[in-house]
Design a protein around this nucleic acid. Structure first.
Lengths: 105, 105
DNA sequence: TTGACATGTAACCGAACAGTTACATAATGA
DNA sequence: TCATTATGTAACTGTTCGGTTACATGTCAA
């Protein structure tokens, strides 16, 4: 299982992306995230575990609370993949255009 | 169901991303894609349907063959989301750094 | 020390997924 | 016309997922 697989899988669920967007506005406790996204505490806990495994978030312990924030490297893997995909596609299109141009000479 | 949900869901499966990467090298028939990715024809057909619904690929009929290629707009939705995510996070980090700087004056 | 609180893990369940085989549809070419 | 080829759809199935409730762990505060 590649890292990109794990990251894209994590990004595949709307609630998990919503949690990531939420954490852009600042770190938050697990319980707060559960309320904000209308899901049970165990439910959000599982989503948070998925995001953590993907390296998208980091947890910090403060007393009996677990506070989550974005990983500084968050989503860079997926972003790199998509950007590479985008770039390669563009060059592929460019080659196609050139080939067509050559044909029509 | 938002479009971003559909796109990220489509990107969430390794075979579907492999098919996208494959299509960067040029368009291909469904049967060829099945062989190349070691999956049955109906199996690849379902993956292709998912990718098509997400707007990531386009099909073209040539006789009795269906030839698939990347959509010119492929993955732009997901790419935009990730880039926005990235940008927002950077500005959030910037604000954090500024606040810390302010505190330490 | 003890009760309350915050969270994660275990166990469970219905729904969705990803794969298969069998069948339907449509186009080729002999 | 008719057998063949390319593909999609239908029907089915084992597995995974996403959600819940119940329980365990660990920390605070009185």
């Amino acid at each position: 299982m590649e890292q990109a697989d794990i990251v894209f899988y994590a990004l595949g669920h709307p609630i998990r992306r919503a949690v990531l967007a939420r954490l852009q506005t600042g770190e938050a406790r697990a319980g707060v995230l559960a309320i904000e996204h209308d899901i049970s505490r165990p439910g959000v806990s599982k989503h948070l575990a998925v995001l953590r495994r993907a390296g998208l978030i980091i947890e910090r312990k403060s007393g009996r609370e677990l506070i989550y924030r974005l990983n500084p490297e968050a989503a860079s893997e997926a972003r790199d993949w998509l950007n590479a995909f985008w770039e390669n596609r563009l060059s592929a299109l460019k080659q196609l255009a050139e080939a067509r141009h050559e044909r029509e000479k």
